[in-house]
Simulated scan of single mutants.
Amino acid sequence: MTTYIDRQTTLAQQIVLEGIGVHSGKPATLTLLPADANTGVVFQRTDDEASSEVPALWNRVTATALCTVLSDPAKDGVSTVEHLMAALAGLGVDNVIAELDGPEMPIMDGSSAAFVEAIKQAGIKRLDRGRRYIRVKKTVRVDNGSAWCELVPNDRTSYDITIDFDTPLIGRQRFAADLTPDVFCEELCRARTFGNVSDVEKLWKMGFALGSSLENSVAISEDKVLNPEGTRWPDEFARHKALDAVGDLALAGLPILGLYRSYKGGHKMNHAILEKLFSDSSAFEIVEAPAYRAHSQATPGLAAAAFGPDVS
């Protein structure tokens, strides 16, 4: 039997994606570049004279109200990073330099699908360093009124996301699954962001969501979906919240071996659970994937990923 090791990965080649920022409504170009082992995901603004780098880490998050924001977008920061981060985490891409020509990521169709397709076409390259993980050792929890979230010890990366909206169109929905490349591609990556038209109109008056449209959001009005094609799944709303959670928790800097559960969660609580986890050094440990043999009893969650064109 062939011996493998769960190695770190990067892109096999450069990727360029163009779109608009959902809040600014302005054109945005994203270039994803291969990176060395242990680089992680790093954002770099090409319009910033200082050319400073912003690592995609939880302690660089500066806002979570409408999206997840890293650093100061007026300077070197980037907003709406969660959909790209979800795609990278979902496909198991560890190391990438993300160059952006402005303060906001392109929203594409409001999901991670375009990022996933581009990564698959580019291919994923395995590197000569073992992949490291954050293993949750004890439960950590955050409560906020009726909303809550928690990270629970688990031998794999899993999500259990429940939403509960007053509108009958959404109501209570739940998405639960182990995170694998297949699950992410088939069950999560196409789930789009959503919002009520009345809320979007308020944001427009405040100068936000200027790029929001039926091309990149599921629009709801009076308990009806305005998009002609409808929803991609009956529970697309819960799936998108799960997609956001995958992207937000990717800001841990390493894949998390644990179960993330949330009820009425969102960007703010996704970030809060990382703050809570890292505030207690006894709640986690860093582990590196061991070598293993095909068809052997490998530790679940540490098995080498099988996804996309592999150009080891």
Rank of each mutant, 00 (worst) to 15 (best):
L259W: 11
E222S: 12
L203W: 14
S217N: 10
R232T: 03
S221A: 12
L257M: 02
V183E: 09
G145T: 07
P234C: 12
T231G: 04
A176V: 06
G195I: 05
D223T: 00
Y260G: 06
A191F: 04
S212M: 14
N154P: 08
E236Y: 00
L151P: 00
F194P: 02
F184H: 01
I256Q: 08
D160V: 09
K205V: 13
F165K: 03
T193H: 02
D143F: 15
D235M: 05
R232I: 11
A238H: 10
K241H: 07
L151T: 09
P181R: 04
F237W: 04
W204L: 15
R156S: 09
G247L: 15
A209W: 04
G211I: 01
A176N: 10
P255W: 10
R156I: 04
T167E: 06
R192F: 10
A238R: 12
I220Y: 01
P255N: 05
L188T: 02
D248V: 04
T231H: 06
P168G: 03
T157N: 11
H240Q: 08
S217H: 10
D160W: 09
G211Q: 01
F237K: 11
A219R: 09
V183S: 00
I256P: 09
T167A: 04
R239H: 07
G230T: 03
A242C: 15
R239G: 00
R190D: 14
N144K: 15
L203E: 12
S213L: 04
R239K: 08
A242G: 12
I163D: 00
L179H: 08
S221T: 00
V218M: 12
L188G: 03
P234E: 14
A238W: 13
P255K: 07
A245C: 10
A252K: 08
G145E: 06
V218R: 13
V197T: 05
L254P: 01
W148C: 09
N216Q: 00
G145A: 05
A238Y: 12
V246S: 11
K202Y: 14
D160M: 07
I163P: 01
V225M: 09
L243D: 07
L188K: 03
S146V: 11
E229L: 13
L151D: 07
C189L: 11
Q173S: 09
L188H: 05
D223G: 02
L254F: 13
R239V: 03
D164K: 00
